[in-house]
Design a protein around this nucleic acid. Structure first.
Lengths: 155, 155
DNA sequence: CATGATAATGATATGGTATATCATATCTAG
DNA sequence: CTAGATATGATATACCATATCATTATCATG
């Protein structure tokens, strides 16, 4: 990710936070940045380590959890519950309202791609769910996959 | 769940285990039964407590994990990774080959319904995933919902 | 029925994930 | 400048899960 791109994302993230009456503090900014520049999802403890590796003052893990909670509430970060790890939202600079995210997680290299699933599919899904007597609240989906790179390497 | 129904499930579960060269021991049977009669998913530690509440000898949690691993490998039990809890498969007595399970989880009462999603939807999903450069390995999906009961109670 | 291979369980230690709570600091608006 | 809201520090604790080595049970076979 280029510095310019990172910069643009941070500016937008700041906007999002201010708009909802919060603040994107230095620590929150740094945690978000660490997630943005990481190739793989990170756990709260890994984030604390990464933070402390390049910082004078140390960040306790508990603060990382709080910061992640906040960033999640602003939809800047998503939690992958199948891995207990966290990832930056891929669509921070998109202006459109956030859709429910869908994640393709590579079983081999842990790379994650956040995609938007066609509305038609989600609608169909919703219909089946209503038939079963439930109503969909949040359709974040985590799909276990293998990415192209890893498939080639295996072959 | 009626005793007869439980009985039928257990007999089928036994068949499944024997067929793949394993055994449905008393302890495994009891853990499966506890999951079958529970209205909500249970954690490994909750299962250990439930087991020990009605047993002379005590079951260490670590054994519960091993038993769950086994039952999962036989597809008699599923893990809900969004809740770190376990649930009995709803389709043990079905003779057809197991499909990938999809779970509707009620946010309010934690009830879970295991449904089969129309093949067409899964196929569409797979197509989009290939477009994104990934290949689907396992499409177990956990969907956060509200069930009919809880919706009525809220109204 | 003795035996050895395999399957299953016991027991202990340890590591990873997450929340609760109370105290302290920082920012912002009036 | 100060009160209230927001954010962070610090400590304790609970919950979830795996690793490892020892022991016991089961079963096919000689």
């Amino acid at each position: 990710m280029s510095p310019e791109q990172l910069n643009r994302i941070m500016t937008k993230a700041q906007d999002v936070c201010v708009h909802s009456g919060g603040r994107l503090t230095e620590k929150r900014k740094r945690i978000l940045e660490l997630l943005l520049i990481s190739d793989t999802p990170l756990s709260a403890y890994e984030l604390a380590d990464a933070y402390n590796a390049h910082a004078a003052a140390s960040m306790p893990t508990m603060s990382v959890y709080r910061i992640l909670d906040y960033l999640e509430s602003e939809q800047l970060v998503h939690k992958l519950s199948s891995a207990n790890k966290y990832i930056a939202c891929s669509h921070i600079t998109c202006s459109h309202a956030h859709k429910v995210p869908q994640f393709l997680i590579c079983r081999e290299c842990q790379s994650v791609k956040e995609i938007a699933i066609a509305k038609g599919i989600i609608d169909e899904l919703g219909k089946q769910i209503v038939d079963a007597g439930y109503n969909l609240i949040n359709s974040q989906i985590e799909l276990q996959c293998v990415c192209e790179n890893c498939m080639e390497n295996a072959a």
